[in-house]
Design a protein around this nucleic acid. Structure first.
Lengths: 255, 255
DNA sequence: TCAAAAACATGATATTAGTCATGTTTTTCT
DNA sequence: AGAAAAACATGACTAATATCATGTTTTTGA
């Protein structure tokens, strides 16, 4: 009955899936992506072929969910195209966005490692996305065959842990405007595209999205963004968000 | 010059160290501890002997630091006895405690995995502690020889990441009293000792310590603890902190 | 053991951010 | 293109928490 109340649960998954290891031109479409994922580039030719056979690709639209918090985890995932947000919710409808996953990002490299583990959050596309996935058993098999792959996963998880701890510090110690400045700085640096007038974020991002990422209400984020706009630090709204002064934002973020 | 201002930097490390692999009665003292660390119990006899040779044990007192934020990471560590807190600080002296590490906890299983990586936080004993450590190269060697060890580390890091993400959600969405209730619930469940009058925390924990863990000021935590005391949810102060009503604290924590 | 330091406590006040209400602008979908 | 929905915006008010001040109690260490 909790699910009945959940607005997300009405969504239908309209995704389409195919086994890419069985593609007619083996490796052509796929290798381009795999070559950008350190985890796969370090595999031996033999192991890479083996892994390819177990990978499948699925596309999701904006209104699909890849999986929901609390569901059992059966696959190891990799973002191929697009952006996926990882969200935790409370029973009363508040949301907290933990991470924006970009192409090359692994997910469920963790939950997948436990038998019967439940997803700690919901994975939701920010638009059209393409996801590669591998059954849990094949993932374990890969880790056992290739110590280098396991070490790559350790490195990836370490980075994620450091990120989460840094975010912890920010949430614990900084004001809302500093947290927002830190978010914009991070997104700008990580994925911003340099344009004539500033650094554009290649991602639709509403004030609400930002609020869920910095632990504030939508109104608070709107007010702060209005201020940032007046101070010529940013410009635009969700569909076209541009950072005009990364330096000042960075300075504000670090106190 | 930043270090000059850091009150922590005046502390001397008065620790004593010894190679436990070279102990006169090999394995006697050590195996008791190692048997509680999943990472070691899954090793083959041969690998375990090899690992033992590279481990050394160091004791630290309350006023020592095991390592400081920003220092290069050269070892993989395991808590043998006592509690270690993992802290991040801001230039203006504010602190955020990320994690209390208990016996069996691994640390720098992450930072150690990168060449020349810096410690993302400071490791500070909460009293007398005993730490096992292994040089980075031996740690890598272990991971390469034993896929099971690597998988154990992946599992450990996954748990740490989930904890950090849960804490993220709590910091982003909950009030100070709920955050404190969540902390007490967690510590009580994880390490509390059942006594006649309630669940005692086997750990000196000041209001200040708690404040650093829940992202609040000391005064705020004192006020909330005073209220919890009036409501008979907790009793005592730092040296002897007792949880009287775990259920109500748990209920408060989850809204 | 006893003085100093640290921890605990509480009040007054200021700041920050949330809540609720209302209206405008932009985007989406058919 | 045009209606509906979503996003953006701002004001008034309230709630939560920080800050500063001051005093008491407990713990620590020589």
């Amino acid at each position: 009955m909790v699910l009945e109340l959940d607005p997300l649960s009405k969504r239908l998954n309209t995704s389409s899936s195919k086994h890419i290891g069985a593609a007619k031109q083996p490796g052509v479409t796929t290798n381009h992506v795999l070559d950008r994922v350190p985890l796969f580039t370090i595999l031996s030719r033999q192991n890479r072929e083996r892994v390819l056979k177990t990978l499948s690709e699925t596309r999701y639209g904006k209104h699909d969910l890849i999986f929901r918090e609390g569901e059992p985890s059966e696959y190891f995932h990799i973002v191929k195209e697009g952006t996926v947000k990882c969200v935790k919710s409370t029973p009363d409808g508040k949301e907290c966005t933990l991470k924006m996953l970009m192409p090359g990002d692994l997910f469920c490299c963790d939950a997948a490692a436990f038998d019967g583990a439940r997803h700690p959050g919901t994975a939701q596309p920010m638009g059209e996305v393409s996801i590669l996935r591998m059954p849990k058993s094949a993932y374990f098999d890969m880790l056992r065959r290739s110590p280098d792959a396991a070490i790559e996963v350790i490195k990836y998880l370490s980075n994620r842990l450091h990120e989460a701890q840094e975010q912890n510090k920010i949430l614990a110690l900084d004001r809302a405007d500093q947290r927002l400045a830190a978010l914009l700085t991070d997104l700008g640096t990580r994925s911003g595209i340099q344009e004539r007038h500033g650094l554009r974020l290649p991602l639709r991002l509403t004030r609400q999205d930002m609020a869920n990422m910095v632990g504030a209400t939508t109104e608070t984020v709107i007010r702060i963004m209005s201020r940032f706009k007046r101070e010529r630090l940013v410009a635009g709204t969700a569909n076209r968000l541009v950072i005009l002064n990364l330096q000042k934002l960075k300075a504000l973020a670090s106190g």
